[in-house]
Design a protein around this nucleic acid. Structure first.
Lengths: 177, 177
DNA sequence: CTAAAGTTTCAATAATTACTGAAACTTTAG
DNA sequence: CTAAAGTTTCAGTAATTATTGAAACTTTAG
């Protein structure tokens, strides 16, 4: 399937980075392949393109579905399932961000919530620190969720401001009065 | 060292989450312990508190230093080294964010940069997609760097706006004219 | 209803990553 | 300079995670 050398290199790179991105090599490779391929492809084609077993592909696709990154499609008169990236690069990035937040932050936040609830009075050093972490994670989650809810175009516009947002921040403050 | 049940639970939790956060169990636990402990503690105390080998602690501390998350200190008349979290929770979070960007995004960005440079002309589907990914990562990196350069207080102020930034965004746009 | 085409599951194995204890190294008090 | 106190390295082992092939399952054409 993928002939181009660059494409090949990119797929391999995504495999190597996979574990740093929160999944494994195979999943990284499959995801890259699906992003880079114009039309939907079958599990068998994926297995062949990446030289991995059919069952490994099946597991990888399942994992990618849990990340909401791939789409299933069918061809008329063909029983096979075909797979494709769900959305634009920006939307995919937003989805990955959202899922990672869910997997990397949510569990800690719930633990902290229940711990702080159980010991509301205490003001030991440890409790204070837990409170600080809780507040940080809570605010970060809310902020990330807000950003993720934006249209890619709006988000891009915002991001292009860079550190310029601080000026806008002061501006808004002054206008309030 | 850590007696409190909550503290203990939190440390264990950080160990379990460690691998999702980009390091291993031990590193997660050590980091949590150092954050939660008011004074600097020695490597030996860490090993005892977490029931792990002295050498494992040594490796974990080295890793944490590469993340710029811990500080070394000494007590007068004592040759031992003592360790402590470097900074406030917010600063630590910013550091982690920065390091993760470096480890998770930078390598891909450089690959894409050189690939796109080598094939500037091409407009195949694959090349286009690589370009899109490149642009996304570039913008995201710049934006994240800008945010990370802010004082925690400023950043918090910004984050508290939530999706309210979009309003400010439009506001700024109107004022420009 | 059956067989063929396709997909998924899962136990066994391979590969990777983490942890340990012993040995090597470093620093400083005496 | 030596020995003691401390730290790091590293080869071997343990634990975890990923991959495979075979068997089980599912769906549909005929």
């Amino acid at each position: 399937m993928p002939i181009n050398t660059d494409t090949q290199a990119f797929i391999m790179h995504c495999g190597e980075m996979g574990s740093r991105w929160g999944f494994n090599r195979t999943v990284g490779q499959i995801c890259a392949l699906l992003v880079i391929t114009p039309e939907p492809i079958s599990a068998e084609q994926i297995a062949e393109a990446l030289s991995i077993s059919r069952s490994n592909v099946s597991m990888g696709l399942k994992e990618l579905q849990s990340w909401r990154l791939i789409q299933l499609s069918h061809k008329p008169g063909d029983r096979k399932e075909y797979f494709d990236a769900t959305a634009s690069i920006w939307e995919m990035a937003q989805t990955i961000f959202e899922e990672r937040l869910k997997r990397e932050v949510d569990p800690t936040l719930s633990l902290l919530r229940s711990q702080l609830l159980a010991h509301e009075g205490d003001a030991t050093y440890g409790q204070q620190r837990l409170q600080e972490i809780h507040d940080l994670l809570e605010l970060t989650t809310a902020w990330a969720t807000a950003l993720n809810g934006m249209q890619p175009a709006t988000l891009q516009q915002l991001m292009k401001l860079g550190s310029g947002v601080t000026k806008v921040l002061g501006l808004k403050d002054k206008l309030k009065r």
